[in-house]
Simulated scan of single mutants.
Amino acid sequence: MSRARNTGPMQASQRCGAQTRNGEPCRAPALRGKTRCRMHGGAAGSGAPFGNGNAVKHGFFTRDAIEERKFVRTVLIEAENVLRQLPTRPEATCNPRERGTQHIIPGTEPPPPHLTNDSK
């Protein structure tokens, strides 16, 4: 059941010629009106976008975003320096007997009575 196939036009067609991974030229036929085969850029819609759209910078590395991060960094450093210049012991700056008010240092107040086990 073998038939003679008409392979002449396909054998005579222009070849793709793109360099393959093993360094040899591609032997697939080029598409009609193109110089490459469907696997090497001859298909519609293949290839890089016009105007080098791949080189557009996105939001994280734009000049504005970099400047904003630098500004925030300097503000944080300045705030840290201001905090370091403040006195470290608050009891040294305020007198608890002054004006009859009692000053409690944050973090040293006793827990509320409903959270303790002293109800026995």
Results as ranks from 00 to 15, higher is better:
Arg32Met: 03
Arg73Met: 05
Thr62Gly: 10
Val75Gly: 05
Arg89Met: 05
Ile66Arg: 14
Ala30Arg: 06
Gln102Met: 01
Ser13Leu: 03
Arg84Asp: 06
His58Asp: 06
Asn6Lys: 09
Gly59Trp: 13
Pro9Gln: 04
Ala65Ser: 15
Leu76Gln: 11
Ala43Gln: 15
Phe50Lys: 13
Arg73Glu: 01
Pro87Val: 08
Arg69Thr: 09
Leu83Ser: 08
Gly51Val: 04
Val75Thr: 10
Gly100Arg: 15
Gly33Phe: 04
Gly53Gln: 02
Ala79Val: 05
Arg63Thr: 09
Gly59Arg: 15
Pro96Cys: 05
Arg99Lys: 10
Val56Asp: 00
Pro96Ile: 01
Arg36Pro: 00
Val75Ala: 10
Asn22Cys: 07
Thr88Gln: 13
Arg89Tyr: 08
Asn81His: 14
Arg32Asn: 09
Glu80Tyr: 14
Phe60Asn: 10
Val72Lys: 15
Glu24Arg: 15
Gln11Phe: 07
Arg38Cys: 01
Arg32Ser: 11
Ile77Phe: 07
Val72His: 12
Ser46His: 13
Arg99Ala: 02
Gly59Asn: 15
Pro96Ser: 04
Thr62Asn: 07
Ala18Trp: 12
Cys37Asp: 09
Glu24Ile: 05
Arg27Cys: 00
Gln14Lys: 14
Gln85Trp: 09
Gly47Met: 09
Thr101Pro: 00
Ala92Trp: 15
Pro9Lys: 11
Gln11Trp: 06
Gly23Glu: 12
His103Met: 08
Arg27Tyr: 03
Pro9Asp: 03
Arg97Thr: 12
His58Leu: 01
Arg38Gln: 10
Cys26Gln: 06
Thr35Val: 04
Lys34Cys: 02
Thr7Gln: 09
Arg27Asn: 03
Gly51Glu: 00
Ala65Gly: 06
Glu98Leu: 13
Gly41Thr: 07
Arg38Ala: 08
Asp64Met: 13
Ala92His: 15
Pro9Leu: 04
Arg15Ser: 01
Gly100Ile: 12
Leu86Gln: 14
Gln85Met: 10
Asn52Cys: 02
Leu86Arg: 15
Cys26Thr: 06
Glu67Ile: 09
Ala30Asn: 06
Thr93Glu: 11
Arg89Pro: 00
Gln102Thr: 08
Gly51Thr: 01
Ala4Phe: 07
Leu83Cys: 13
Lys70Ala: 10
Gly53Phe: 01
Gly59Cys: 13
Asp64Tyr: 03
Phe50Pro: 12
